[in-house]
Design a protein around this nucleic acid. Structure first.
Lengths: 257, 257
DNA sequence: TAGTGGTCTAGACCACCTC
DNA sequence: AGGTGGTCTAGACCACTAC
């Protein structure tokens, strides 16, 4: 039991009080100067302790307001059912999911031609730097930034389906549009990773320090070859993904938390 | 384009130099006092900038040594094939996976009876606080802490399969053991989340600031009801999960990065 | 205007690693 | 012994929010 530095003692004490309900989610912590007096530490030392809790995602701060205990309402995304053609959905699977959860979805959308980044190029089995269609979505739930989604399509597919490069939404959904052209998506390869956000991601998702992002890469395959690569970036504090595998007839529709 | 505070300018400059290869993964950054001179900033300001990069997982520091650029060799875990009974594996699926990747696995193991935490109790559909068997694994790859895995089994299952509570390993694997008793696992429900590690997790996994953990919860079902709940905690910087869904005959065995 | 957090400084002392 | 990062202080000034 070695002696902890003072700023850790501050962080640990506050963490305990957050855990035991002294400061419930959404409430405000005492000001830096109050804590400074309470712990007999300089303001900078208290700030180091608070900084620890911020970097662990427990609290957040805003200038002029103070420190607030984080509250999370997580959103569950069923990745194995999402976009499943045997569960027909009209149009956008994301909007449907969010609306079903009683929340209000919105998004901004853009389409561009872009040289394939190495990551996507490898998955699409095209040369890095070759042309791809990028369809990009910035998604919000109840006006809170939620996720970004970037789908790359290889150039050869564009020649079969020119509407892929049209700037607007495709009403029936791109998957259906491609299926109507005879390019059927019959399998996915999903990859899931996590890391701290880049400054660009932090800006788009409006996450502060201490909130990791969840990276979901879905590569869709026809019977011959990969036809698309979708990278979705979620706020890790607001999202959870799940997969159903095998026979789950014993599982009710709504499990407890 | 508003003026950035000085510590952000420091962080941004160093990030660019890390990205463009001036400081490749594994190399050392200049010392705080050198950077202080270079950026005409106090040592504390430089430390703030470095702290940003640490909290983003780009660099790490150690006393007396300096700052090192992080290097990641990620390990891919195929979650849809893992433990699949139709791909028979003898014994421990984890060891097999790691050995196949040319790495050396090791683990510590313990079994105890424990009141069910609320999280697991809900998934197993038993009362919170009722008795469960906890089988806990602390796993290492090449002696680097890799993941912890905690599986809870409900009490009613223990009466059918008393060996669950035996302290040692079950040679043929618990899944096979249960199947031999007529309790067959025919489906999984997987949940994936991410967050910053708790102090306890940081200790077990030896992660520094800026590395999130990946949380994988697998609830296994027989034809009647849930029979186990496994929570695995991974170092987010060293692991990636993937799922194969549908027909992937077009996908070769080894895809590029 | 008063109170909050955000930035920055200059300096002190300590703990750890390498030589 | 000399260099590295880790902790801590005291004080200054700025930017934002509330009233």
């Amino acid at each position: 039991m070695s002696k902890q530095p003072k700023y850790r003692q501050v962080a640990d004490a506050l963490r305990r009080e957050i855990d035991n309900g002294t400061y419930p989610p959404g409430s405000r912590l005492p000001s830096e100067s109050e804590l400074s007096a309470r712990f007999d530490a300089s303001r900078n030392t208290v700030r180091s302790g608070l900084g620890l809790l911020v970097s662990q995602g427990l609290i957040s701060s805003s200038q002029g307001l103070g420190y607030e205990v984080a509250k999370h309402e997580v959103f569950e995304l069923n990745a194995s059912r999402f976009e499943n053609l045997t569960f027909p959905q009209n149009g956008d699977a994301y909007s449907t999911d969010v609306t079903n959860a009683g929340r209000r979805p919105s998004q901004t959308f853009r389409v561009e031609l872009q040289p394939a980044p190495a990551y996507q190029a490898g998955r699409l089995r095209v040369d890095a730097g070759s042309t791809t269609v990028l369809r990009f979505c910035h998604r919000f739930v109840d006006d809170v930034p939620w996720s970004t989604q970037a789908t790359h399509y290889p150039e050869w597919l564009l020649r079969q389906g020119p509407r892929l490069a049209e700037p607007g939404d495709i009403a029936e959904g791109t998957t259906r549009y491609l299926a109507s052209l005879g390019v059927e998506q019959i399998g996915y390869f999903d990859e899931i990773a996590t890391r701290m956000p880049t400054p660009e991601e932090a800006r788009l998702l409006e996450v502060g320090a201490g909130v990791p992002v969840l990276l979901w890469t879905r590569t869709g395959y026809s019977k011959d070859r990969p036809i698309r690569c979708t990278v979705t970036t979620f706020r890790g504090d607001l999202n959870r993904m799940n997969y159903e595998i095998g026979d789950l007839s014993a599982r009710g529709e709504d499990e407890p938390q």
